[in-house]
Deep mutational scan, measured.
Amino acid sequence: QKTCLICGDEASGCHYGALTCGSCKVFFKRAAEGKQKYLCASRNDCTIDKFRRKNCPSCRLRKCYEAGMTLGARKL
Protein backbone atom coordinates (compact mmCIF):
# COMPACT_ATOMS: atom_id res chain seq x y z
CA GLN A 1 0.00 0.00 0.00
CA LYS A 2 1.38 3.39 -1.01
CA THR A 3 1.08 6.40 1.26
CA CYS A 4 0.19 10.01 0.39
CA LEU A 5 3.24 12.24 0.86
CA ILE A 6 1.02 15.06 2.12
CA CYS A 7 -1.34 13.52 4.68
CA GLY A 8 -0.31 9.88 5.03
CA ASP A 9 -3.63 8.47 3.78
CA GLU A 10 -3.65 5.70 1.17
CA ALA A 11 -2.30 7.12 -2.10
CA SER A 12 -4.27 6.73 -5.32
CA GLY A 13 -1.35 7.52 -7.63
CA CYS A 14 1.16 10.13 -8.70
CA HIS A 15 -0.63 13.44 -9.22
CA TYR A 16 0.98 16.78 -10.14
CA GLY A 17 4.39 15.26 -9.55
CA ALA A 18 3.88 13.62 -6.14
CA LEU A 19 2.37 10.44 -4.74
CA THR A 20 -0.94 11.60 -3.22
CA CYS A 21 -4.43 10.55 -2.19
CA GLY A 22 -7.48 11.79 -4.09
CA SER A 23 -8.28 14.39 -1.44
CA CYS A 24 -4.86 16.05 -1.58
CA LYS A 25 -4.86 15.89 -5.39
CA VAL A 26 -8.14 17.81 -5.60
CA PHE A 27 -7.11 20.21 -2.82
CA PHE A 28 -3.86 21.06 -4.62
CA LYS A 29 -5.57 21.65 -7.96
CA ARG A 30 -8.16 23.99 -6.45
CA ALA A 31 -5.70 25.79 -4.16
CA ALA A 32 -2.95 26.24 -6.76
CA GLU A 33 -5.35 27.43 -9.48
CA GLY A 34 -7.37 29.65 -7.16
CA LYS A 35 -6.80 33.27 -6.29
CA GLN A 36 -7.39 32.77 -2.56
CA LYS A 37 -4.44 33.35 -0.26
CA TYR A 38 -4.16 31.02 2.72
CA LEU A 39 -2.67 32.16 6.01
CA CYS A 40 -1.67 29.90 8.88
CA ALA A 41 -3.20 30.85 12.24
CA SER A 42 -0.27 29.22 14.02
CA ARG A 43 3.47 29.16 13.20
CA ASN A 44 3.41 27.59 9.72
CA ASP A 45 4.19 24.17 11.17
CA CYS A 46 0.76 22.59 11.58
CA THR A 47 0.51 18.81 11.57
CA ILE A 48 -1.04 17.62 8.32
CA ASP A 49 -2.32 14.06 8.56
CA LYS A 50 -5.34 12.05 7.47
CA PHE A 51 -7.47 13.38 10.32
CA ARG A 52 -6.26 17.01 10.43
CA ARG A 53 -5.55 17.74 6.77
CA LYS A 54 -8.51 20.16 6.52
CA ASN A 55 -7.54 22.19 9.60
CA CYS A 56 -4.89 24.39 7.95
CA PRO A 57 -5.01 24.83 4.16
CA SER A 58 -1.94 27.08 4.29
CA CYS A 59 0.30 24.39 5.77
CA ARG A 60 -1.28 21.72 3.57
CA LEU A 61 -0.53 23.72 0.42
CA ARG A 62 3.03 24.43 1.63
CA LYS A 63 3.52 20.71 2.16
CA CYS A 64 2.25 20.05 -1.38
CA TYR A 65 4.85 22.41 -2.84
CA GLU A 66 7.57 20.92 -0.62
CA ALA A 67 6.68 17.48 -2.00
CA GLY A 68 7.33 18.84 -5.50
CA MET A 69 3.76 19.26 -6.70
CA THR A 70 3.24 21.61 -9.67
CA LEU A 71 0.24 22.25 -11.90
CA GLY A 72 2.44 21.64 -14.93
CA ALA A 73 3.33 18.08 -13.92
CA ARG A 74 1.50 15.35 -15.79
CA LYS A 75 -0.30 12.50 -14.08
CA LEU A 76 2.02 9.50 -14.13
Rank of each mutant, 00 (worst) to 15 (best):
L71D: 06
K29N: 08
C14D: 15
H15E: 15
P57T: 08
G68D: 02
D49F: 02
K35S: 12
R74Y: 07
T3F: 10
G72H: 11
T47D: 12
E33G: 14
C14N: 04
S58N: 06
R30N: 14
L5P: 04
G34D: 04
P57V: 12
C7K: 00
S58D: 12
K25H: 13
A32F: 06
Y65E: 09
P57C: 15
G13S: 12
K35M: 14
K29C: 03
K37W: 07
L19N: 10
K25Q: 13
G13P: 08
A18W: 00
A32V: 12
C7M: 00
Y65Q: 12
R52M: 10
K63G: 03
D49K: 04
E33A: 08
L19V: 12
T20I: 12
L71P: 07
Y16E: 04
D49M: 03
S12T: 07
C21A: 02
L39R: 13
T47Q: 10
I48D: 04
P57N: 10
H15Q: 06
T47E: 11
A32D: 13
A32P: 02
K50Q: 10
C64E: 01
C46M: 00
D9E: 06
A31D: 03
C14M: 09
C14V: 05
R74N: 11
C4A: 01
Q36D: 14
I48Y: 06
Y38M: 12
D45S: 04
K63V: 07
S58Q: 08
K37E: 15
T47G: 09
N55A: 15
D49G: 06
K50D: 03
R52Q: 10
C56T: 02
E33M: 14
S23M: 07
C24L: 01
Q36H: 13
T3R: 09
C14T: 15
E33R: 11
L39S: 08
D45R: 13
D45H: 06
C40L: 01
L5G: 06
K29I: 04
R52P: 13
P57I: 07
A32R: 07
T47S: 12
C14H: 12
T47F: 09
D49H: 04
C64T: 02
S23W: 08
K25T: 13
Q1D: 15
T20S: 14
Y16T: 03
K50M: 06
C64N: 03
F27K: 01
D49V: 03
F27P: 02
T3I: 13
Q1E: 15
A73W: 06
D49S: 07
A73K: 06
K50S: 08
S23A: 07
G13Q: 05
L5Y: 07
L71H: 07
T3L: 12
K25F: 10
K63D: 04
Q36W: 05
G13V: 10
S58I: 02
T3Q: 11
Y16D: 04
I48F: 05
K25D: 12
R52F: 07
Q36L: 10
Y16F: 15
G72S: 09
A73E: 14
Y38T: 06
K50I: 05
K50C: 08
K29P: 04
K25W: 09
N44A: 10
G8K: 08
C14E: 13
R52G: 13
S12G: 11
D45C: 04
G17M: 05
V26N: 15
L19P: 08
H15S: 05
V26P: 01
I6Q: 03
C7N: 05
H15L: 05
G8H: 10
C40H: 01
C14F: 09
K37C: 06
K50G: 07
K50A: 06
F27M: 00
R30G: 11
G8W: 03
G13D: 06
A32G: 13
C40V: 02
A18G: 04
N55C: 10
F27C: 01
Q36K: 13
L5M: 05
C14Y: 12
F27D: 03
Y65M: 09
A31Q: 10
D49C: 03
A18C: 09
T47P: 13
K29E: 15
I48N: 06
R74F: 07
V26G: 13
C46F: 00
C46P: 00
R52T: 15
G8R: 03
I6D: 02
A41V: 13
K25M: 13
S23C: 06
A41L: 11
N55H: 13
L71V: 09
I6C: 04
C46W: 01
C64F: 01
K35Y: 12
Q36Y: 06
G13H: 06
S58C: 15
G68S: 06
R52C: 09
K37D: 13
T20W: 02
A31R: 03
K50T: 10
